[in-house]
Amino acid sequence: MTRTMAAANSEFCISLRNRWVAIAVVLMALFSFVLSAAGSAPTGQLGADKLSITVASLTSLAVYLVPLVALLMAFDAVAGEIERGTLSLMLTYPVSRAEILVGKFVAHLGILALALAVGYSIAAAVAIWYDPQASDGIPALIRLFWSSLLLGATFLALGYAISAVARRPGAAAGLAIALWLVAIVLYDLALLSALVADTNGAFTKQVFPWLIVANPADAFRLYNLSASEATMAVTGIGGAANTIPSSQALASMVIWPVVAFCLAIAAFRRVVP
């Protein structure tokens, strides 16, 4: 425990110095503020409180931003230690590889939690300022917060796995961006084009819901949007996937970080310093 916390403490120090903490917090604060300020217009038509609208916008934002920030923090975790020659040194200390990785994870997840807490609090404050009814949306915002953390945890762990497989920081950075593009952007585009090609066919009914649940980012979006009935208009995917029970999306969101972290540890164990 002491050793894990030592690794976490050191990693937090490094992120603080590298301005990662500042970048993540400012990024989330800025986007949340803009979205919540802009999201105050359509309340009347949708009949939902301002905060619920904001949560829908934040969901769409978090799907892109949270995995990106997580991957950017994680890609250097193992490859950077290899490059500096500190990995072989650290592994001669009485500390296990899992302890090192958990330490880094705790620090990175903490930074993410801080950034999300600041950003989402600003969003809540702005929404409630405009519309006292907006406090009805607070449960949705809290749900968004912890599900964003689960999403971030998944991509942090995937980032560590990439870092351990790539072994060099440059290659790891490239792979991390590639993963983000594929999992967050191209995956949805591919699914949408498949949907268009196969309207109401076997793919749409049988395969598509599973493909949505299988992607942690889509599961995250689906879970947050289906839990908030005001928001189906926001995304085509949400509309097409409304047959999937949110419990399945939740299960996917909980299983993914565990699987990804096991992958990361397995990849890290294969690294020969």
Partner: peptide, 11 residues
């Protein structure tokens, strides 16, 4: 003590 050890420059 590894050869040519380099620690994290930010710490």
């Amino acid at each position: 003590l590894p050869e040519n050890v380099a620690f994290h420059p930010s710490l």
